[in-house]
Computed example of a mutant assay.
Amino acid sequence: MLEQYYQDFGSHVCITREQGSRFAKAVADDFNPLHDVDAKKFCVPGDLLFSVVLDKYGINQEMRFTFASMVDEGVKLGMPEGAAQFDIKDGDKCYLSVERDGLNSKCKTLTNALIRNYVEFSGKAFPHVVIPLMSKQGVMINPARPMIIYESMSIHLDKIDVQAPELREAEHEFTFEGKRGKIILRFDLLENGEVIGRGEKHMLVSGIREYCQDTVDALISGYNDKKALLKSA
């Protein structure tokens, strides 16, 4: 499923602007302007990095991914030997730290199902989950510069001998102090209706301000208009 979204050179991988942007829009349904091909400050989607790691190393019962730096096009992301802990780096610069434990599965059916379910869930976080979650506490992001940074994500599987788990949203959390805050998006993984795992996505938010319905309506409308335009192109 991922072959068209990154270039595999064995010891390292590279991702072009076109590949990162296409993954964001076609797989994750994510229309963050940072992932546009012509973005001035383009960055590869964090969910694509997560997906590449699963594609290369398989799935463990316990996995944690910590994002250290944004990846631009042309970065040579080194793929070290699989271990309990390893870093995805270009030279001395670390972009992603990975921690793993428990049994490992390289089942492509499971890998593809987990990737597709997770990135679809993650991609729709903005605006469908983040804005309503923040509005409950009377605040919103800065519409002129919506800074939401992907900090980390983790997954736990009770068992690894599954093939097509489904993802169900769980209870999310938002806390803030002043203009900075943290969002935790939670989900359960189910196989035949039974919960067999769970996970979390952590994001940092800055530029928080008082909630304004008119501004939120304009922000969502603009996002949806851009999404419709790009999908029809």
Rank of each mutant, 00 (worst) to 15 (best):
V130W: 07
A83W: 10
G10D: 10
F67A: 12
V13W: 05
P80C: 09
D101Q: 15
I208M: 03
G78K: 12
S232Y: 13
K231C: 14
G222R: 01
Q85G: 01
E151D: 15
V53I: 00
K76A: 05
D87K: 15
T109Q: 15
H128E: 08
E99S: 14
I220M: 10
G197P: 03
K108S: 08
E191V: 13
D87A: 15
P80R: 09
F50A: 07
N224I: 12
D30M: 06
F65K: 00
D90W: 02
K41R: 08
R17I: 05
P165D: 03
P165E: 04
A164M: 12
D36Q: 05
K93L: 09
G222S: 11
V13M: 02
G138H: 04
L49E: 00
Q4Y: 06
K106S: 13
D87V: 08
K179A: 14
A84L: 14
L230V: 14
M134D: 11
C14M: 06
F121C: 07
L77E: 07
M203L: 11
R209G: 04
K136R: 10
V129K: 13
G20K: 13
H35V: 03
A84M: 15
G181T: 00
N142F: 00
G207N: 14
K93P: 03
S11P: 10
V13K: 00
V162T: 10
M153R: 11
Y118N: 00
E171R: 14
A218R: 14
T16I: 02
S135P: 08
T66E: 12
G199I: 08
I196F: 15
L189H: 01
L157N: 15
K93D: 07
A39E: 07
T66G: 04
T66W: 02
N142G: 03
D161S: 15
I160W: 08
K106V: 15
D47E: 05
M153V: 07
V216R: 13
I155S: 12
Y118G: 00
L189W: 03
I196W: 06
L54N: 06
K108A: 05
F23A: 00
A24G: 06
S152H: 01
F121I: 14
G78R: 15
G199C: 08
P33G: 07
G181Q: 02
A83C: 09
S221C: 09
L204Q: 15
E210N: 12
G46Q: 04
T109N: 02
E62R: 11
E120S: 14
A144P: 02
F31Y: 13
K124L: 12
I131K: 11
K136D: 15
E194N: 10
E191D: 04
T16F: 01
K89A: 14
M134R: 08
K231A: 09
E169L: 08
D36W: 14
N192E: 04
H128Q: 08
M140I: 08
E151S: 11
S97E: 04
K41F: 10
G178C: 03
A39S: 08
L114W: 04
N104R: 14
K227F: 12
S135W: 11
F176D: 00
E191Y: 10
F187G: 07
M79T: 14
S21G: 01
V119E: 07
L48E: 10
